[in-house]
């Protein structure tokens, strides 16, 4: 099979499926913590494990972390952080892990907790579940992520936006959640390929087999996905007039409120990303020394 080096293949832990790949970047999704070590060993035999992403209904503080998980790059999608007391007690263990924690943005407490975790050196982020968002709170989190003068761990998706932003390109931060078919492809146990996690769940496959991945560039679904943004300009949606279009691309079209709160947030995030670029440009070049 031709390798598409830039794609990470996202799949469940299925040893039979994994054995068909060689030299690929593989990301495993799971709904439990069982078999984490086995996953690590099996995938890394002939491929590279990008991370294991666990989607669970347990709060962070109710998870019992095992010491030997510290070799496994882990991403956790959790409903909440849990009690602060327990979190502080767990910190020494968490800090040994190679860990990212994502909480749903719809709960205001989660937004505070993401900042809490980041302030203590834990890579954390929000993800957008399909529920009403407190845009003001998200704005505060974005401001913290981009402007805080105190050191902290990255906060997603703002870290991604700041670090990947280029002024002459749009930026799809769905990549943070593996939903960018230019970087991630989702494969089911039968080897069929979907462009996003949602499409995989819905059984909508772009390719009947992973063996066809090298035809992706010409694949109609793939092309349509990458040109779907043009609909906004054909239909002249509110998003097409948004000053922050380039880093959002209409993700919140269905939930635009009268104050255009999403626009207010992303305009500030865009300015933060530009500041970040500017600061990095001004860093002095390294000078070779003995």
């Amino acid at each position: 099979m031709n390798k598409l080096k830039r794609h990470t293949l996202v799949m469940n832990f299925d040893e039979n499926l994994i054995s068909k790949f060689n030299g690929e970047n593989i990301l495993i999704t799971s709904d439990s913590f069982n078999l984490l070590n086995r996953t690590y060993d099996v995938v890394n035999q002939n491929n590279k494990l990008v991370n294991v992403t666990v989607y669970t209904q347990s709060a962070l503080t109710s998870i019992k972390f095992l010491e030997n998980w510290n070799r496994i790059p882990l991403a956790l999608y959790l409903p909440s952080m849990g009690s602060y007391r327990m979190f502080f007690h767990m910190l020494p263990v968490l800090r040994q892990m190679n860990l990212r924690i994502y909480l749903p943005v719809s709960n205001n407490q989660n937004i505070i907790d993401v900042q809490m975790m980041a302030s203590l050196g834990i890579f954390a982020g929000i993800y957008f579940d399909k529920k009403p968002i407190n845009w003001e709170k998200v704005k505060e989190l974005a401001f913290y992520s981009q402007y805080s003068k105190s050191q902290h761990a990255p906060v997603e998706p703002f870290h991604h936006i700041s670090s990947k932003y280029k002024s002459d390109e749009t930026l799809d931060f769905n990549a943070v959640y593996y939903n960018d078919p230019n970087q991630f492809l989702h494969i089911n146990n039968e080897g069929k390929v979907a462009l996003t996690y949602q499409l995989l769940k819905e059984g909508k496959f772009a390719l009947e087999s992973y063996l066809q991945i090298n035809t992706l560039k010409e694949n109609e679904d793939f092309v349509n996905y990458n040109t779907a943004w043009q609909r906004h300009f054909l239909d002249k949606t509110t998003c097409s007039y948004c000053p922050a279009w380039r880093i959002c691309m209409g993700k919140f079209e269905s939930s635009i409120d009268a104050e255009k709160s999403c626009q207010q947030l992303f305009v500030e995030v865009l300015e933060g990303a530009e500041n970040h670029q500017e600061k990095n440009k001004r860093k002095p070049e390294k000078v070779w020394q003995l």
């Binding site: 002459d168 390109e169 300009f233 097409s240 007039y241 948004c242 279009w245 380039r246």
Partner: peptide, 8 residues
């Protein structure tokens, strides 16, 4: 904004 968004 429309015009500048169309082609970066």
């Amino acid at each position: 904004h429309f015009l500048t968004n169309m082609n970066l």
